[in-house]
Amino acid sequence: MELSDSSLLDLIRFLESPELDCERVFDVLDQYAEIEIRTEDAARLLPFVHRHLETCSKCCDEYEALLDVLIKIQESEGNKNDRL
């Protein structure tokens, strides 16, 4: 099957887009955030995620929001346990 000119350009554009990396990072973002919360070294265990988060604001926003949620939930559960 021969690709049309515009399909060919779409393909090249896709190769250049960070989209692929974002998807790959999103796949493990939950795991990464949990490792970070347990104060293990997420950056060392999943270096490609760390590198991507440093340069991609979209993924970094998602990551920081997820961390916020995990931390706040942990805090609120901690408080509950303190009261018991």
Binding site: F26, L29, D30, E62, A65, L66, V69, L70
Partner: peptide, 14 residues
């Protein structure tokens, strides 16, 4: 690879 609820939050955040 994570808690199910963490995965759930990740999807909702996106």
């Amino acid at each position: 690879r994570s808690q199910f609820t963490t995965w759930v939050h990740k999807i909702a955040i996106r």
